[in-house]
Design a protein around this nucleic acid. Structure first.
Length: 589
RNA sequence: GGUCCCGUAGCUCAGCUGGAUAGAGCAUCUGCCUUCUAAGCAGACGGUCGCGCGUUCGAAUCGCGCCGGGAUCACCA
């Protein structure tokens, strides 16, 4: 809608003031002023040698004369507000009605894929609020990229081995008396988490005894019987001891069943899971070959390092002196593996900002190793989720469990829906689905509307609010439109000859027209919050229209049919946009 | 201590590459349902954009210095 005007303005400025601009910046006119587009003329004063007002008027006059869509202008100080005719708005509207999936690019399977890694849990405890932000961001970013036409591979790396899971295993062996999810009815990941906590208690008790017997605190932690058992179990696991492996498999299977339940509730899914038990040895080869090329160096004690001080970072260990790998080592190996597994155009790690340094180093090392794709790696670094009381602390039991939270959201949706009497005529099953849709919509929107980079505060009470700038508000706007459209099915025929746009209608169409570029930009920035605020603006604007215009009882059948069509577009954009955030838009609520 | 991130209304957040009197929601107060769902709409109240310099015709936005908060700098993951 703007591009044609921009080039005309460029020509005018150049002709009038004898300069050679290649681009001018037109912005949308702020609501309190009349007009559609605004040119700030201050940059041209030097060339025009006139006052801001005179400069603006000169450009405005020329624009009215040269561009048929410009029907007027006004000048406020150095701001030229350009008034457009309805024509470009009508053209924009016609265009979006042609494509039922307008704003979403069709998938092009021939393009190399974008890989998005997210979630990536440990298998010793259930998912919590922090994982929820991670999952929602990862999933949404994947949908955004997909909406630009690029195939996406969603993956997670599951930290299924190591000390942490041995702790749960030791405690289970000692105290569980054979408890299983089946006969306790406890969800698998919660059951394993229970024994992880149990281990911690046991360790504390044993350490306390040792300290009382005169052992130093840090020594006591290492020599506590349960800790010795963990170390032994880790060795057994690495040696492939069948009994240990059997227990490990059994408990991890419980956890995965639990995780899958939560993932499915959240509506996220993965195309491939990487397991650390498979990948933890990866990378060592790459270090060895890099050692040959002089990228790494070996110290006298045998440990291997890389010197990143030239880039303002530190020296970083990549192999221990006993030759075993560290976290960095396997991340190097896993990245390389992934580019072998898939034809990838990019790889995005959705990981909290406490690992900023780690990824800086990782990307740098891969670049030093000479991988051309190293600059296609990105770290979607998001801020921590705090509670009003401060940071979540597992030791203080302030961690918000993911399953509990989803339950609460569903219950809150149920309470509110029933109070408002919104569920009449729905079957029991439909009601349950609706509560889930609304409850989850509220949670997802609450989290995704915030810029990922920023640390955010999660207030359980406020997230349950369904009024104002919330997911249910957007869902409600959608549902209300659906309700109108159901009654307005017969309204089809209209033409622009019989419809004049009201200011509200114009505003809605102008907003609708921004949907594709909003999606594009959000995908590029890997920022779902841009879509969230856009959808809020759209819903707000549509509700303003709804308040003053009737669709069904419009002045003429043509206008009614046009408004039905306009409403259809809004509902479509809302529902497609919400889907990018992993939120469903109900037809009734 | 080094490096990085953050600081906008009582609270939670928007403010794209610098542009007009800094915007929403919640909370508080006022109106609007015999008319397409009031989970809505309209309005009021509320801000030295952490502080101070500087660059600029113009700074919440860019630069520097402070103050306050957080993260990170492990032969941990």
């Amino acid at each position: 809608m703007q591009s044609a005007i921009v080039s005309t303005v460029v020509d005018i400025v150049n002709d009038l003031f004898g300069i050679q601009e290649t681009h001018v910046d037109l912005q949308e006119t702020r609501k309190e002023f009349k007009g559609d587009l605004t040119l700030v003329v201050f940059p041209y004063l030097r060339a025009s040698k006139k006052s801001p007002e005179a400069t603006a008027s000169a450009i405005g006059d020329a624009l009215v004369e040269r561009h048929q869509d410009v029907i007027g202008y006004n000048v406020v100080k150095g701001f030229l507000n350009i008034v457009l005719s309805d024509h470009p708005v009508q053209v924009a509207f016609d265009q979006m009605t042609l494509d039922p999936n307008w704003g979403i690019q069709p998938l092009n399977d021939h393009l190399p894929a974008a890989m998005v890694e997210y979630s990536s849990p440990n298998t010793n405890k259930p998912l919590h609020l922090g994982h929820i932000r991670n999952n929602l961001l990862g999933y949404s970013v994947a949908q955004l990229i997909k909406a630009t036409g690029k195939p996406v591979v969603q993956v997670q790396i599951i930290n299924d081995r190591g000390v942490h899971i041995c702790k749960s295993m030791v405690a289970w062996k000692r105290f569980a008396e054979g408890e299983t999810p089946e006969h306790t009815g406890i969800k698998g990941d919660h059951l394993v988490g229970k024994y992880y906590v149990r281990f911690d208690q046991q360790l504390k008790a044993e350490v306390k005894d040792l300290v009382a017997a005169g052992v130093a605190e840090d020594e006591a932690v290492k020599s506590a019987p349960c800790m010795i058992e963990v170390q032994q179990m880790l060795k057994d696991w690495e040696a492939g001891d069948p009994a240990t492996l059997a227990l490990w498999t059994k408990m991890n299977t419980w956890v995965y069943e639990g995780f899958n339940t939560t993932y499915s509730r959240l509506g996220v899914q993965f195309d491939k899971n990487y397991y650390e038990s498979d990948t933890y040895l990866l990378g060592k080869q790459d270090i060895e070959s890099g050692l040959g090329k002089g990228i790494f160096y070996r110290r006298e004690d045998g440990s291997v390092w890389i010197d990143l001080t030239a880039e303002g970072l530190d020296e970083k260990l990549v192999l221990r002196q006993d030759g075993t790998s560290v976290y960095m080592t396997q991340d190097i190996g896993t990245a390389i593996q992934r580019f072998k597994d898939f034809k990838l155009d990019s790889l995005t790690y959705v990981v909290g900002n406490e690992q900023d340094y780690h990824f800086k180093v990782l990307f740098l090392i891969l670049k030093r190793l000479g991988y051309t794709w190293a600059d296609k790696l990105s770290h979607l670094s998001y801020g921590m989720v705090d509670l009003p009381s401060g940071r979540m602390k597992s030791r203080e039991g302030t961690v918000v469990d993911a399953d509990d939270l989803l339950d609460e959201m569903e219950n809150a949706a149920k309470t509110v829906s029933e109070e408002l009497g919104k569920v009449e005529g729905l079957s029991e099953k439909e009601r349950t689905t609706l509560y889930t849709t609304i409850g989850h919509g509220a949670l997802k929107y609450f989290i995704l509307k915030v810029d990922p980079k920023k640390r955010m505060v999660f207030n359980p009470e406020e997230s349950i609010d369904f009024n104002g700038n919330t997911g249910p508000f957007l869902q409600y706007t959608h549902a209300r439109i659906c309700s109108i459209l159901k009654k307005a099915k017969y309204l089809k025929d209209w033409t622009w000859d019989h419809v004049t746009l009201s200011s509200k209608e114009r505003e809605v169409i102008k907003l609708l027209a921004k949907f594709p570029s909003t999606v594009q930009h959000a995908a590029q920035e890997q920022n779902p919050s841009e879509v969230a605020s856009y959808l809020y603006d759209l819903a707000k604007s549509y509700n303003g229209f709804y308040q003053v215009h009737s669709v069904i009882n419009a002045e003429t059948p043509h206008i009614a049919a046009f408004r039905a069509s306009l409403s259809t577009q809004v509902a479509g954009v809302l529902s497609r946009g919400l889907l990018l955030l992993g939120i469903e838009a109900p037809k009734q609520m």
